[in-house]
Design a protein around this nucleic acid. Structure first.
Lengths: 350, 350
DNA sequence: ATTAGCACTCAGGAGTTAAGAGTGCTAACA
DNA sequence: TGTTAGCACTCTTAACTCCTGAGTGCTAAT
């Protein structure tokens, strides 16, 4: 996001820019020179401030909504604000709530992610989106099939991270229940410890052959289980506080609300946006976003890690007029917590 | 909902009332006499229709939004419409989608409920709420504890209906892992087949004693597992298409949208409304609702059964201007499907 | 370099007007 | 006696005008 030319702003311009943005973030109303001149930390007259504002506008940091309105930060202004005007973030207290939950160790990682999404949205009134951990490191712990009745059973699959996937199914007449058992035994023997993402591969190369030898009418049963084991989408999306964003004054228009909600329903698209995010905290403001649907919003992403590898992404979606300072420190804190939580679950594989 | 006096309407009044309501449901705009007189099935002049409309208004079935507007059905009008003017419902084709899913038997009942909620909302553009099956008949099938590492494990609980509940936890230092195993064994032996809702009771009376005999440092471990087994809320609420309702023209106002969403967040309240619903299809229009929050909406509930017992409730929430005919037949169909689905899962207990 | 002063601009609310849709009533009609 | 045509009347809605207040840009004085 570096421009070729380094723009020099005077000390006073910096302060004024900062105050304007802070004020606008807080009030959502264009800020005028008169109001600014009254602020304690700005001992200049309205006229002086007007001049500075005109300069800042010329430089592209500010905009007017119409000729005689107060100034509003431009996207470039926000960008400068985020890059240079917000101090180092301090780990905020709010995060403690999550810290406790995570330390408890009582919840599965997935639940922690879900809660984090909700808490994050609750704290900010923006919409949070969390991309669940990718399953590179996740391995199969156990497959189990439990008959419920003559004709139905439930299959349960557990990973080393404590993730449980289950599905009920009816047992087709043709399938012999002892065959099923044999099959599950073979699978458990051979698939234990295999990474989830390689499951399908191993299933085809190693297991299929083996089974064909031992089991009558193998094909049918195999297809059946395969559908279950080769689980749907490996990465899950958790969305928190879709309706919290209605609190934001920029959503004062029914059409905006509608289009926001329709956008949030396209989970694939969202997932793609997040997948492309880089490591660390990343702030994307308005048109910096490549996806049209959020070109008038800001997106903040932070990733959490495992042994340096990118594992998942936390994101917060809100109006460009976002409380960047607060949000960034929150996200940093949360990303640390998540990384810790990852560690707790993944450290002792067997 | 019977009024003491039986109101007699002429044949023509009936037709006019019906056409007006149909038209308004369709267009969401007050309907005037001129437009009506042009309809093929109304061979009367605008003036005649005006007279009839005036009568219908006097009787309380119609209202005007202002002195010179067309007529709009009153709540009483809708009530009459629902009670007398919509013919017997035919099982609609749309339901087939669900039928297939259910017959497949591939999904757990809970998933079916979830999908039903979504499909129902999709088909109607209203918001669907489904109260999951109460667990009177549900019994415990198996408890399993699977160690993930030295310090963590996942507990899995399966019911006879194929419902799977799971929770990860860290194993406290003090607890001996073989003790855990013993405990689980005892539980499986004694709790298998016990109805979920009686789990806590049996746990205290029978099991506690037994365990104290066999296991060292029993108290700690026991508390731990109990928290898991005595599961949270026994009845779950599934909401589908919260944002579908934004398609309705009556939600053209940001405040209405906000208050709708805040209402939808109070799940307890919703659950209570649904719990009180009687058997069969029930339509509650506007102020007939006892809960303030939905006094300007209509709620349609239908219940599904098991051996005659009420098991759960399907509901649809939308504007009073609702497509009652379509919705009612959909709900009847769905409630039948759900009843069938219940039967499929519950028939072969062991 | 800063500031006071003043003319100018524009959004938004209040008031006005005109068009259109619909009604109620009366009188004519079958 | 039930139905219809006609007409005056009402009320909403959108467009237009007017006015005020907030805010600006520029110039001249400090």
């Amino acid at each position: 996001m570096l421009t070729g030319v380094i723009i020099m702003l005077t000390e006073r311009q910096l302060i004024i820019l900062q105050v304007i943005i802070d004020d606008f973030i807080d009030s959502a109303r264009p800020v005028g020179s008169r109001a600014l001149s009254k602020k304690a930390n700005l001992p200049y007259s309205a006229a002086t401030i007007r001049n500075e504002m005109a300069d800042l506008e010329e430089l592209g940091f500010l905009e007017k909504t119409h000729t005689s309105s107060g100034r509003v930060p431009s996207e470039k202004g926000y960008r400068y604000y985020v890059d240079h005007l917000i101090g180092p973030s301090t780990n905020p207290n709010e995060i403690r709530i999550l810290e406790d939950i995570i330390q408890d160790g009582f919840f599965e990682f997935e639940q922690i992610v879900q809660m984090s999404a909700e808490v994050l949205s609750e704290l900010t009134n923006y919409t949070s989106i969390i991309l669940g951990p990718e399953m590179f490191e996740t391995t199969l712990k156990q497959i189990q099939i439990l008959p419920l009745s003559d004709h139905s059973a439930v299959a349960i699959l557990v990973t080393n991270t404590g993730h449980v996937e289950h599905r009920s199914f009816t047992i087709p007449e043709k399938i012999n229940s002892s065959d099923l058992e044999k099959m599950v035994n073979i699978m458990n023997e051979r698939l234990k410890g295999v990474p989830i993402i390689k499951l399908q591969e191993v299933l085809h190369t190693e297991i299929a052959l083996l089974m064909r030898m031992y089991i009558d009418d193998f094909e049918k049963s195999f297809d059946y289980l395969k559908a279950f084991i080769v689980t749907d989408n490996p990465v899950k999306l958790y969305i928190g506080g879709k309706s919290n964003i209605l609190m934001q004054p920029e959503f004062n228009d029914v059409d905006k609300i509608r289009s926001f909600f329709t956008m949030m329903e396209k989970e694939n698209e969202l997932a793609n946006i997040l997948k492309n995010s880089k490591n660390g905290i990343e702030v994307t403001i308005g048109n910096e976003n490549e996806v049209d649907a959020i070109k008038d919003l800001s997106l903040i992403t932070a990733s959490y890690h495992m042994a340096g590898d990118h594992m998942g992404t936390i994101a917060l979606l809100g109006p460009t007029r976002m409380e960047y300072k607060k949000v960034i420190s929150l996200m940093k804190g949360l990303s640390n917590e998540m990384t810790d939580a990852m560690y707790m679950w993944y450290r002792n594989d067997d």
